[in-house]
Amino acid sequence: MKRLKDAIDGVDLNRFRIWFQLAMFVLLVYGGYLAINLGNHLPMFACGFNQEGRGGICYLMPLQHQLARPWPQLFGMASLGVLTGFGIFWLWFIFLNKGWCGYVCPLGTIQDWITALRRRLGVRYARYTQDQFRHLSRVKYVLLALMILIPLGIGGGWFSRDMGTPFCLICPARMVLPLFTGDLSHLTVDFSSKTAVAMTVLGMLITGLFLTGAFVKKRFFCFFCPMSALHYLISRPALLKLRKDGDKCTRCGDCYRACDMEIKAIADDVKNADIMADDCILCLKCVAACPEPGALKATFATITIFESTEAGFIKRCQKGIGLDQPKR
């Protein structure tokens, strides 16, 4: 048991993630060809517009559809459907918490690939200042609110039906993911109405921004993701948790350096044990980068599954010290 624990704690997390993310990407983007269907309540961007290859559908798409029903229907019997839908989504979600973002979301994986490309090219990444970070961090809640209010407005007859699934229209996943199955049809502007033109043009712009943004900034889009906001609001009972023992922390900032989302609290907060912030993608790179035994850990239903250790840190983070080679 101890040996198994040491093996897990000493794992090369980045390599594990690369393969795990690739497997999940294949499952969710090409799974449809193998008749895999994980349903349409998945808590990450397995895009429904990737019609042939999809192995499941992002919950935001049916949610926006459901909310756009005429009000008498929505607030009548249909509310039951909305609630069960949310229930299924929630069950999926609590299993991995935000680990869906760091390990499963295909759009997140694509951003990591773009980051890897940048790193290969030797280009440094950009950072936000703390002020920018604070402001940008709020955008996702605004998007979440709009994503709920606009479909409700459609149901109430205030907005055009062309605004249906407003977030999907501007989500980069709609344009990017179908490309992987050779579907170029979403890279177009819809000229059928003024609203459609506006939304699809906005969508194109955001996709362009997504690709360039992800090149200069790690996990660029995740700051703005309404799914991430929704996750955070319901994350309390989740099974997978990121925990910190502040007493063991030296605030050396190694975890903060590793954090793709620039979450400063991971290093500085020594009071809260439940350390997952709203921007967190639970990639666990912080745990892998922590040199203090037991200071950071990932737990599943209160059982520790991955913990920071000195040996693991040295193995992962100290390049070329030649500990495996014979000494002079």
């Binding site: 030797g122 030296t250 903060y256």
Partner: peptide
């Protein structure tokens, strides 16, 4: 001697900043 550096991306800029942090 106790506190050790961690580097996320082994590019010169990032390495120097990591050192500074340590």
């Amino acid at each position: 001697l106790y506190d050790m550096t961690s580097v996320d991306e082994w590019l010169l800029n990032n390495m120097v900043d990591s050192l500074a942090d340590k």
